[in-house]
C-alpha cells in the first residue's frame, strides 16, 4: 500500500525538515521511502514543497501529482495543491496563516493553529514540529512513537532544543486528537 504526503509552505518554515523526519520514521519502520524536494529556481520567501512517498513494496515513480495527504503551511500552498489531493485524503491547514479552507467535500481537514501554538511554547520555530505530529497522529501514516524518537535524534547535537521540540510534538498530537 503506497501513501504520499506533500508538505508545502514558505521557504524557512521547516517544510523540508518535517518531511525528512517523516521519511526517517517510515524507514525505521522498515518501509520503502522516497523524499522528493522541489528544487526549482525559488526566491527567499517563495514557496517550497516536498513530497514523501512510503510503501511496503519498492517505489516506482517517485513523482506524485495527486498525493493522499497535504500539509499546507501557508495560503498559496493550500490554494495551489488542495485540488490535487486524492478523494478521501486529508489536508492539514496551518490556520494561523490561512484564513480559507480547501472547499472540498471529499476530503477531511485538520486545522492546526501552528504559529500561535508554537509562540505559546516559546518560539515560532517549532511550528513545523507541531504540524508534523498533528499530521502523523491524524493520518496514521507512520508510527508516532518512532517519529517522536526521530525528532529527538535529529536534535541530538543541539540538546537544549530537545525539550521544546518534544513539547511541540506532544502539543501537535493533542490537537489532532481533539
Amino acid at each position: 500500500m503506497q501513501k504520499e504526503v506533500m508538505f508545502a509552505g514558505f521557504g524557512g518554515q521547516g517544510i523540508l525538515l518535517s518531511a525528512k523526519l517523516l521519511a526517517y520514521a517510515a524507514m525505521k519502520q522498515g518501509l520503502e521511502v522516497a523524499w522528493v524536494p522541489s528544487y526549482g529556481p525559488e526566491m527567499r520567501g517563495g514557496t517550497a514543497y516536498c513530497t514523501v512517498v512510503i510503501s511496503d513494496i519498492r517505489i516506482g515513480s517517485p513523482i506524485i501529482k495527486n498525493p493522499t495527504y497535504l500539509v499546507a503551511m501557508n495560503r498559496p500552498s493550500l490554494e495551489k495543491f488542495a485540488p490535487n489531493v486524492k478523494p478521501g485524503g486529508i489536508v492539514v491547514i496551518n490556520s494561523s496563516l490561512i484564513p480559507v479552507r480547501s472547499e472540498r467535500d471529499d476530503i477531511s481537514e485538520l486545522l492546526v493553529p501552528a504559529n500561535e501554538e508554537a509562540i505559546n511554547l516559546g518560539t515560532v520555530r517549532c511550528a513545523n514540529i507541531i504540524v508534523l505530529s498533528a499530521f502523523a497522529a491524524k493520518s496514521g501514516m507512520v508510527d508516532t512513537d518512532i517519529l517522536r524518537q526521530c525528532v529527538k535524534d535529529n536534535f541530538a547535537s543541539k540538546k537544549k532544543v530537545i525539550p521544546l521540540n518534544m513539547k511541540a510534538f506532544d502539543r501537535g498530537m493533542e490537537i489532532a486528537e481533539d
Binding site: 525528512k20 521519511a23 524507514m27 520503502e32 521511502v33 522516497a34 523524499w35 522528493v36 524536494p37 528544487y39 517517485p62 513523482i63
Partner: peptide, 10 residues
C-alpha cells in the same frame, strides 16, 4: 538526472 541527485532514499 536532477531528481536522482536531489531525492533522498534509504
Amino acid at each position: 538526472d536532477g531528481l536522482i541527485g536531489q531525492m533522498m532514499e534509504p
